[in-house]
Design a protein around this nucleic acid. Structure first.
Lengths: 333, 333
DNA sequence: AACACGCTGTGGAACGTTCCAAGCCGTCGT
DNA sequence: ACGACGGCTTGGAACGTTCCACAGCGTGTT
């Protein structure tokens, strides 16, 4: 029942362990005869190289670690697709670990992946501060997705949250809304930029007095609570820009529960253009981020550092795009 | 920039590497003085034990590998929560890898995790056959979640899909439906049981002639296509039982697109009671599986094999529960 | 005074790979 | 006939841990 080692294979094939190693790594300096003998023996024994031993001597593991701040958020699933795909085409393996929307648990996940000597780390929507990430992972390339930073030791990929949020406000203003509220997500990745964009655009349209941000989160529950507090205030805005799609769903729930109609009584806009927003029954107006592309880009940045030895930081900002669906409309007069 | 090793720490602290090792593993046979000296040195150097070296000598990695067949399916996210939580409380780390709903990619993910010498493997909703899984992973404990098996070398956790499906049909029959169709998911995990339960219950109610199963999948697209084919047939059933919630969303989309009303024109029932079904705008009637509990149970099964050396198989079947929401109602007369 | 014991600490052998320098053979050119 | 060379193959030294047997030393027991 014990896993066979390279020596077992060598003995069975009647060659040295070095030769087995060469065959396993597809070297071309091996005779056809030895090659097939080794492969045969390996197959019979069910041999599988031990990645621990290999990574110990090679000083690289061939693994990229990815910490996903919330597995339930479908937007992250899209980005993860891009990450796994790009990793595979470059000969790497992506392993995911959930951060459970908690800075402590994220830190512990980083620790695990660092102990495993992952060759690179991707933080997908983190709750940790940039400083703490930098401290934790000073020895390997790190890419942060979805959080603004100008750190010199890390790279980042994000969309222009500020611009996206402004596009949302412009859209709502264009429909005739003035009392536009915002359910923000505190200091989670991207939340600040969206909030700033919201405020900037409100000012720009002369709606500075109507700026109204309430606390939410990047979760269904967060959106629900945020919307709830707007409803409870007795002073309902005519439109709400919610931190992301996932939270917007929660907001829709709160609105439905209060017996209000969307978009008749209130317009709702999310962020991410995740699979959720496509669903016709939801048809959420939102802002699209190039999710899969962001994942692929993150991997590319890691590879540049590893293979080409790049050491100057790259901070990539991709353009967002407003997607108008059914939850936004002209306000009732 | 190179990672410090245990020897670097030992030198800096003026002790032997063995002692550092003891401190890092929280041994109590170390004097207070040495302990703090070592911790201090480790902190200064940013030392982090090398998991590869450790797992090489300990012959165990402390890692559970989990292959998630589809990261986009929110049901799996719930189960994964249970897995990660239970792993952590038992001193293990769970690492996830996506299977991309593809048997080949699942096999390659298994390979990676096996090379990493994961101490246990959890297949979360697999596309591979049980036989192939058994072949691939004969050396370590494996738990399959959501697929029926009586394999003697593996454990499994699932809900009683047959019973769940029967409960759905009973519910619809009770509302007065007779022409109940089923959008199935082929041979994916759990799909067969649901189909069988559907057929059994139909027969039981004397509706054998109305049995009608169309091909779908455990995805939004699969549900959409399946529903589409029912609509295109021109012979619309009064109710549809869709393979899972995710696919049911797709079915709802197809129905909306055809300009039909749910539940007035057609009732729709899903399976999983995932977060999606809760959303008030969807309010999907569905069958709840104890998702988080299933994840925890899978970990428990692994631990039993590892720690207690259990070798007889356990196949755990948990009871499903019908959850009636808004997408099912009395058929129009 | 001799000895046993408990508490700390140590050196060296594993663990399963990869990598490197070197070795073995047969062939080819001179 | 001899050296050089090229194609294949090999043994041994890493890699960074853990584990084991053992050593030093102070204290308490006989």
């Amino acid at each position: 029942m014990k896993q066979p080692t390279i020596v077992d294979v060598a003995e069975r094939a009647g060659v040295s362990k070095s030769l087995v190693s060469l065959v396993m790594r597809d070297s071309n300096r091996v005779s056809q005869k030895s090659r097939s003998a080794v492969l045969e023996a390996a197959r019979e024994l069910g041999y599988r190289p031990n990645a621990a031993a290999r990574s110990l001597v090679r000083q690289r593991s061939g693994v990229f670690g990815c910490i996903v701040s919330d597995l339930h958020n479908p937007f992250f699933a899209d980005v993860a697709d891009g990450i796994e795909e790009a990793s595979a085409t470059n000969g790497y393996r992506a392993l995911l670990s959930s951060g459970f929307l908690d800075a402590k648990r994220e830190a512990s996940a980083i620790d695990t992946l660092l102990q495993l000597r992952a060759d690179g780390l991707i933080m997908l929507g983190t709750m940790m501060t940039i400083t703490r990430i930098k401290e934790s992972a000073s020895h390997i390339p790190v890419v942060v997705i979805g959080r603004k930073t100008s750190a010199r030791t890390m790279d980042s990929v994000r969309n222009d949250d500020d611009a996206g949020a402004q596009a949302v406000v412009d859209h709502l203003f264009g429909l005739g809304h003035m009392r536009i509220a915002h359910v923000h997500a505190g200091s989670a990745g991207g939340a600040r930029g969206r909030r700033r964009g919201y405020e900037t655009a409100m000012e720009r349209h002369g709606l500075g007095d109507h700026i109204r941000s309430v606390k939410g989160a990047f979760t269904e529950g967060g959106g629900f609570a945020g919307m709830q507090s707007l409803i409870d205030s007795g002073d309902l805005p005519t439109a709400v820009f919610v931190a992301n799609d996932f939270a917007a769903l929660g907001a829709l729930d709160a609105i439905d529960e209060a017996g209000l109609q969307v978009p008749e009584d209130i317009s709702v806009v999310g962020y991410d253009d995740s699979a959720l927003s496509h669903i016709r029954r939801i048809a959420l107006t939102t802002v699209a981020q190039p999710s899969v592309e962001m994942g692929r880009t993150a991997v590319r940045l890691l590879i540049e550092r590893i293979r080409e030895g790049r050491s100057d930081p790259r901070h990539i900002v991709l353009p967002p795009q407003l997607v108008v669906r059914g939850t936004s409309a002209t306000p009732r007069v």
